[in-house]
């Protein structure tokens, strides 16, 4: 049934969903004085914290709209995931940017599969659903499995850090690619953790308070190149 194209598309920075304006918190971190040598550690720290929460939310959203088995769409389950995710997103600027990225995905889904019931359930969450929930729905709609969805969610986060690093710090692009590659073991274990979550109420809640704090400061910066 799947050509594998769904997850490739979602993992591709060229997908038109507005991702190029987001640095996954790297710009705020560097402005706050985090040394560039720590970027690989930053990448990993994100995967273990916000990365896990978001990947698990994506998986639950994927399941809520039918999942790998093609079950009927459950709008209430989708709403529950979205609410649990919001409850784990204390930073207003980060919720906002997630909503903006989510909106890009809604736009994509609404264009590609306007009549799909999963897309209707996603739209019912409001005009700007959080990105992980939108990602899970879009993944299901375009034929990516739940494990691929979790991996895409994490991979996209790591790549967002890597590509922002090239604009923000003197980094050799090959090194940045190497950082992403070297997160492999972490990613594998976080994917497994995300897939093990059965219920929205059990959505993991590890936080990265420092990243949240930096995001608040970033909002008021006048010379920044990324929104968050």
């Amino acid at each position: 049934m799947t050509s594998g194209l769904g997850s490739l598309l979602l993992a591709d920075a060229r997908l038109p969903v507005g991702g190029h304006t987001y640095s996954a918190g790297l710009e705020p971190a560097l402005i706050a004085g985090m040394p560039a040598e720590l970027i690989p550690a930053y990448m990993t720290a994100r995967l273990r914290t916000v990365g896990l929460v978001e990947a698990a939310a994506s998986v639950l959203a994927h399941r809520a709209v039918g999942g790998d088995g093609g079950a009927p769409v459950d709008p209430r389950a989708l709403e529950a995931v979205h609410e649990e995710l919001l409850a784990r997103s204390p930073s207003d600027p980060l919720r906002e940017v997630s909503g903006m990225l989510g909106r890009g995905l809604v736009r994509l889904a609404a264009r590609l599969r306007p009549d799909h019931p999963a897309v209707a359930a996603l739209r019912a969450l409001g005009r700007a659903p959080q990105r992980p929930v939108a990602l899970g729905v879009v993944a299901a709609v375009i034929g990516a499995g739940e494990a691929e969805t979790a991996r895409v969610s994490l991979y996209d986060d790591a790549q967002t850090v890597a590509s922002a690093a090239l604009k923000l710090a003197p980094v050799d692009p090959v090194d940045a690619a190497g950082w992403v590659l070297s997160t492999g073991d972490v990613m594998t274990s976080v994917v497994a953790e995300a897939l093990a979550v059965r219920d929205a109420a059990d959505l993991p809640a590890p936080t990265a308070p420092q990243i949240e704090g930096w995001s608040l400061e970033h909002r008021n910066k006048t010379r920044r190149i990324f929104i968050a």
Partner: peptide, 8 residues
């Protein structure tokens, strides 16, 4: 290439 943020 990606007009999404502007369209929003």
């Amino acid at each position: 290439d990606d007009v999404t943020p502007n369209l929003i």
